[in-house]
Simulated assay, not measured.
Amino acid sequence: MNYPTAEVLEVKVDTARQLEERLNAAVRNLQLVAAHTRNRGILVTRLDPGHYTVSLSEHVPFGLTREQSR
């Protein structure tokens, strides 16, 4: 089975609908990577309005997704 290799995904949106769809897709992608390594959780960071990163993080326990704003 092939696993996605990106550990940080950038999400840019213009609407609330795009936000939900794109963040969910990014989290699902990284869940596949997290399930393979089983040592990091997922961190969603709001950088600016409509601009986010979704990343694997050692500071988030495996199996969890956390959000933060900068």
Rank of each mutant, 00 (worst) to 15 (best):
E7L: 08
L32K: 15
R17A: 06
G41P: 00
S57H: 03
V54R: 04
A35Q: 12
N2I: 12
S55P: 00
P4D: 07
E21K: 11
K12A: 08
L56H: 01
N29I: 12
A16T: 10
T15D: 00
T45Y: 11
T37L: 15
T37R: 14
A26N: 04
V60P: 02
T37D: 06
V27N: 05
R17C: 02
G41M: 00
A26E: 01
E21G: 10
K12S: 13
T45L: 08
R38Y: 07
G50C: 00
A16Q: 09
P49W: 04
G41E: 03
V8H: 02
R40H: 07
H51Y: 05
L23D: 00
P4H: 09
G41A: 13
V8A: 00
H36W: 10
V27S: 07
L19S: 08
A6P: 02
N39M: 14
E7W: 04
L19K: 15
I42R: 00
F62Y: 13
T45N: 07
L56E: 01
K12F: 11
A35V: 11
N39Y: 15
G41N: 00
L43N: 03
A16Y: 01
F62V: 12
D14W: 09
Y52H: 13
T45V: 13
R38I: 11
E10R: 11
T45P: 01
L43D: 08
A16G: 01
I42V: 04
P4R: 05
T15F: 00
A35D: 12
E10D: 08
H59Q: 09
D48V: 08
H36G: 09
T37M: 10
A6H: 01
Y52L: 06
E20P: 03
L56F: 04
D48C: 05
Q18E: 07
E7V: 03
R38P: 06
L23C: 02
R38H: 11
N39D: 15
L32V: 15
L32W: 14
D14E: 10
D14K: 13
T53E: 03
D48A: 13
S57Q: 11
N24E: 10
P61H: 14
K12D: 06
R28W: 10
A35C: 08
Y3A: 04
E21P: 00
G50M: 03
E7M: 10
R17L: 04
H36Q: 14
V13R: 02
G41D: 04
S57R: 01
L47A: 15
L19T: 13
A26Q: 01
L56K: 02
V54E: 04
P49D: 08
K12L: 11
E21F: 02
E21Y: 04
V27A: 04
T5G: 06
N39S: 15
V33W: 08
V27E: 02
A6T: 01
H51L: 11
N24C: 08
A26L: 01
T15H: 04
H59L: 11
V8R: 06
